[in-house]
Design a protein around this nucleic acid. Structure first.
Length: 198
DNA sequence: GACCAGATTGTCT
DNA sequence: GACAATCTGGTCA
């Protein structure tokens, strides 16, 4: 089933953990592609210098200040996009970065888009999964319950039942940042081979 | 296997 | 003008 409003309205750190084991799906003209979320990072409004919203609202990060349950997509290093789920109270600027997926649906499509054949290399990084699912920059601020990009909860459709058991969550520091690097806000599923880094 | 440079551009100081 | 929540492909062991 599609994640409810209430699901997205959990506190950000809690949501980052709750998103593990849920499914991120994107439907396009080519077909549907998606997978199970196995790695996330929380970005907080208060006390988190790594958060884009830390210095207040700008043109780029405006979506972060919107209601929980919309997408925040931005360009990084001039060539890669990252996908976030906006969370927390509107006006606070918090989000959960989706860092890795376990490919489940539309695998051939994802292989084609990534021009890679190895399963583990399709979605094992924030920019990789955006490419594999062909998430467009225009989806920034789009609703994740009613749009083409959706979050499905663990008790989703049964073709996914085999991998929908409640995951064991490990918590570490975040990746690829300098400020706030010491905060333990990265979460991933223990012993999962599809995370971006062991 | 580990380390490193290059790609490339919107956004903010 | 600097830099960024990254990925890839190269070199050197």
């Amino acid at each position: 089933m599609i994640a409810s409003n209430r699901f997205f309205q959990q506190p950000t750190v809690q949501l980052a953990k709750a998103l593990l084991g849920t499914f991120l799906m994107h439907k396009t003209a080519e077909g549907e592609a998606g997978g199970r979320i196995v790695e996330t990072e929380a970005y907080l409004y208060e006390g988190d210098p790594a958060c884009h919203a830390h210095r207040g609202m700008t043109k780029r990060n405006a979506a972060m200040f919107g209601p929980a349950g919309i997408a925040y997509i931005y360009l990084i290093y001039g060539m890669h996009y990252c996908f976030n789920v906006v969370s927390g109270e509107p006006g606070r600027g918090e989000a959960v970065l989706i860092r890795a997926l376990e490919p489940i649906k539309g695998i051939d499509l994802m292989k084609k888009r990534r021009r890679k054949d190895a399963l583990w290399d399709l979605c094992s990084g924030p920019a990789k999964l955006v490419q594999a699912l062909a998430i467009p920059a225009e989806a920034n601020a789009a609703c994740l319950r009613t749009g083409k990009i959706r979050i499905l909860t663990r008790d989703s459709y049964h073709e996914m039942a085999a991998v929908s058991a409640k995951p064991k969550v490990v918590c570490t520091t975040r990746i690829g940042i300098s400020a706030g690097a010491e905060l333990p806000l990265r979460f991933f599923i223990k012993d999962n081979e599809f995370v971006s880094r062991p």
